[in-house]
């Protein structure tokens, strides 16, 4: 019988898993809520190392929309001062987060938020960022290359302190109805620096997970093209079964949960959550290359971090139904 870690590795390597893995059973997630020195604060409102003011909500951090630090992308060198990564020490954060980590049972998974697009949005606001992508593409590309250097330097620090098996790069490039920018704009302006981040991750021996919420299916071929083998948060507004057929053996999907449906709304019943658990396993499990990642928010935040009485039923339902291979 495989351990959760071994089973997940079988899924990631398109081998012979024994069952559909569940994110939180097979992975120990770190970094996201560490309140470390390289990204936005996670415990209370405050400035990140670039000087961006963030608000901490129960659903996550969000930059203050009235206090952006960059107006014109062509002036980024004047206003964006990259933190000194040599001075960053993640060891205390790693020690705190790895106390109960069992490397025999789980894969250590570091969540690194604020990818290239999200970080530029945090600097200049969403509208200015998007306008810049099409009106000043050269300046954006130059900025993204510099930001990729910073992200890679941070990644090396993360690798040194945590030694993660999996590095999750978060960059939400899509709405519920489609990508924010055209796929061609992504290709021309963001993809080259994005590829460097993927390459650097692989050179460090970590498995790269690309987290992109929303309907981003038009970017997936580009993701595979730059070496991404796992797409995370795969939400159901994308044609997930079609994607599984198209990318069979090339890209694992993690997600499959109806994040806006009845099961994800406040007050959804335990039965509705159980039914969604079964649906996701039955619909996406048989093609393999699938990791179930439920996203259940409640009044206090993400239930998997803050707890929820309904989770016991979800885990039970998963355990009863996941052994389909």
């Amino acid at each position: 019988m495989l351990t959760p870690k071994q089973n997940l590795l079988e899924v990631l390597n398109w081998g012979n898993p024994e069952y559909v893995p569940l994110t939180f059973e097979a992975m120990k997630i770190v970094g996201f809520l560490s309140n470390g020195p390289i990204e936005s604060p996670t415990d209370k409102d405050g400035l990140d190392p670039f000087g961006v003011l963030w608000h901490v909500t129960s659903e996550g951090c969000i930059p203050d929309s009235s206090k952006f630090i960059l107006e014109d992308i062509t002036e980024w060198k004047e206003y964006i001062k990259f933190p000194d990564t040599d001075a960053i020490d993640l060891k205390p954060f790693a020690e705190a987060e790895l106390k109960d980590f069992d490397s025999e049972q789980q894969m250590l998974t570091y969540y690194h938020p604020n990818g290239l697009f999200e970080r530029l949005s945090a600097f200049m606001g969403f509208e200015e960022c998007l306008i810049s992508l099409v009106s000043e593409p050269e300046a954006c590309m130059e900025f993204f290359e510099a930001l990729a250097d910073y992200k890679i330097a941070c990644m090396k620090k993360i690798h040194k302190a945590y030694k993660p098996d999996i590095y999750v790069y978060l960059d939400d490039l899509a709405t519920a109805r489609g990508t924010f920018m055209s796929p061609q704009t992504y290709r021309d302006v963001i993809k080259p620096a994005h590829k460097r981040i993927v390459d650097a991750c692989k050179e460090l021996g970590m498995i790269f997970f690309q987290h992109t919420c929303g309907k981003c299916e038009d970017l997936l071929e580009d993701y595979v093209d730059i070496g991404i083998g796992v797409w995370s948060s795969a939400q159901i507004m994308n044609d997930l079964t079609g994607i599984q057929e198209r990318f069979n053996g090339r890209m694992v999907i993690e997600g499959g949960w109806d994040t806006v449906g009845k099961c994800s709304q406040l007050g959804s019943s335990a039965d509705e959550i159980r039914a969604e658990t079964r649906r996701a396993i039955n619909e996406y499990g048989p093609r393999k290359g699938f990791i179930l990642q439920p996203t259940l928010l409640n009044e206090r935040g993400n239930s998997l971090f803050v707890g929820d009485d309904r989770l016991a039923g979800l885990f039970e339902e998963w355990a009863m139904n996941c052994r389909i291979y």
Binding site: L130, I131, V134, T179, F180, S182, T185
Partner: peptide
């Protein structure tokens, strides 16, 4: 209709 994306809409609005 998906013919253009948010950036193009924003530059027109601007």
């Amino acid at each position: 209709s998906g013919e253009i994306f948010v950036p193009e809409m924003l530059v027109s609005a601007r």
